[in-house]
Design a protein around this nucleic acid. Structure first.
Lengths: 349, 349
DNA sequence: CGCGGCACAGAGAGCGCTCTCGGCGCGGAA
DNA sequence: TTCCGCGCCGAGAGCGCTCTCTGTGCCGCG
């Protein structure tokens, strides 16, 4: 039952159409230099036999796979909120399928997984890789680089040190943070605190930098360390209130953190936004709308990020097959692309 | 830069080890019937050259790909809450990598995508497929069936009509719903309402069935239709309160719905759980813990579901390569596997 | 009328691997 | 010693495709 009839080969199609394998191949692919009459006959034969090219045979000779790997460290995507990763995946998927590429998903979970991924990428099973690298000391980027596979990173890699051949897509964490804090100052708030994310992640570090851009003169004590979870947000909020009972605004590094902060504020009898205004980050959808009050936050185009990553990768792959004559890398190759963020005003600030 | 040195072939390894291709192949795979001395020489050569088998060449002859497709309808995974799908993916990924299989992700979004997926599966690029089919009238299952690819479904397919060769994994929606409602009756609640999900999804239908199992005598008016979103939960909750101002418990078809219901209850001045007890479903993690009060809900082992799906598929594939002599399908083949659910008690009921 | 050129089609090699089959050497039985 | 059997290894075909190279027919031009 599982075994279907043997799939028709090029040969079979050729025979049915009364032409040679080569001609069928020409038609099935680009189809240049084949008379219409013949081409039609071939197409009809393809249709009748239900011919589908054998990808294995094809890539054996072309060395192309029309497949790209998406590599993500599993525990991190978990902490970082799953919807985030899923949305990126969606964007990637759309772009890839639009270009007839397959998406091979590699989720890693530990040292041994890294080795496995390295081997897989080096094995030349895919034409390129999209890698999500969040931590400063992530071993993945090095691995991928070692595998010699064209790669686009999701999120600014921590080791963005001089080498400009690393391509990545990120959203404007720093700019978004600035916008959030400016929004708070615009509301007349003067005692503005920040709850960070885990600072070994570039997104968290960049958001902190954005906060500092606007509040360069803020007390160091107004910055409390969180970890992108609501529990961390609660802890940090308690600390902050203990230190600064008079604070009137909080910028949380993400929405989960903000949700935790909101709970503590309510518990301590602070009204939001009247007493304390709160801004989050991510616009993580189930959460940001469900909090009480709904969260003012910074939205990023997550799906767009994914799509852009895929697009950049595919473009790079194209260039490889048809290298332009200009010397070396095209002038001013965009090594990092930063997507804009927007402030979403809800009730919390 | 992108192009690395040409990858070593079996031939190269053979030459270096001073043996034939066949021997290297034997060692690289099962390694039976090769003297240890020779095998060691081969392994050393593999190591030194950094040889990795060319999967395309291999599957060209073996007709195996060590890859399975995961097919999901994109808009639905969105509505159904993204973390859900991501967790399943994680379970699938773990199981697949444990068996050296790759995960090819196919997200569909419309009619034309269905055709594309059908072609892909029929094209014999993968050894099997894991398909998430939520809707009663989902065209995907039919397509997959037509493609003649071994398949395991995620969630009970709507058309579970007699044919017992369809393999699926689902969690015990009906039993979980029963447990939730019994919990409410155990609390002494007597006026228990239910907000359903979209009833063209089997999970929603099964949860409703579970509600009815326990409250067979409940007024029809105590069942309000929702859509798995918090907005739907709000609307349904308003209806219910209008119809039954005296209701003292609500079983919501999922956590998002429950979150919406909670908002309306608060807005109408009902205390939870004192006046009205609320139970959700899913234990969708960011949400269920963030609501006020935190949600009592029914947890399913989502990751386990994914893992089980993959395991069942791989087992089926194994059988194909090494068919057991027993007649036909193994007696009592588990066509549907139902995973247990557990009630998680928090503050809302 | 003959030749070069062009547009198209076919023959055939070869991508890197697996796997069958045959050969070879060695040990034990006759 | 001869022969068979067995364990191990190599030769070689072939998986389904692409792509180059060659061949063929036809046109235009001299």
């Amino acid at each position: 039952m599982t075994d279907t009839a043997p799939r028709p080969t090029l040969e079979a199609v050729a025979e049915r159409a009364g032409v040679s394998r080569a001609t069928v191949s020409r038609v099935v692919n680009g189809a240049h230099g084949v008379r219409d009459a013949l081409a039609d006959r071939v197409r009809r034969a393809v249709e009748e036999l239900g011919y589908v090219p054998n990808q294995a045979a094809r890539s054996l000779v072309t060395r192309r796979h029309d497949a790209v790997a998406v590599v993500a460290a599993e525990p991190e995507t978990r902490v970082f909120a799953d919807p985030y990763f899923a949305q990126q995946l969606r964007g990637i998927s759309k772009e890839l399928t639009a270009h007839d590429n397959q998406l091979v998903l590699l989720l890693t979970e530990g040292r041994e997984d890294h080795a496995r991924v390295g081997r897989y990428l080096a094995g030349g099973h895919v034409d390129g890789a999209l890698v999500f690298s969040l931590h400063l000391d992530d071993p993945l980027p090095g691995l991928v680089r070692g595998a010699g596979v064209p790669t686009v990173f999701g999120g600014r890699p921590g080791w963005d040190d001089g080498r400009d051949d690393v391509v990545y897509v990120d959203s404007d964490n720093r700019g978004g943070a600035r916008a959030a804090v400016r929004h708070l100052t615009g509301l007349g708030r003067t005692r503005i605190a920040h709850i960070t994310g885990p600072l070994d992640q570039t997104s968290a570090a960049d958001r902190l930098a954005g906060f500092r851009d606007v509040r360069a003169d803020a007390d160091a004590g107004l910055v409390a360390r969180g970890d992108f979870t609501s529990g961390g947000g609660e802890r940090a909020m308690r600390e902050l209130l203990d230190r600064y009972p008079d604070l009137d605004a909080v910028f949380a590094a993400n929405d989960l953190t903000a949700a935790g902060a909101l709970r503590v504020l309510r518990e301590r009898g602070r009204r939001v936004p009247d007493d304390v205004a709160v801004v989050g980050f991510d616009d993580m959808l189930p959460v940001a709308e469900e909090t009480d009050p709904p969260l003012t936050t910074v939205r990023q185009d997550i799906e767009g990020m994914g799509r852009l990553m895929a697009r950049l990768l595919l473009r790079g792959l194209d260039r490889d097959t048809a290298p332009e004559p200009t010397t070396g890398v095209s002038a001013g190759a965009p090594s990092g692309v930063i997507l804009p963020t927007t402030l979403v005003r809800r009730a919390s600030a």
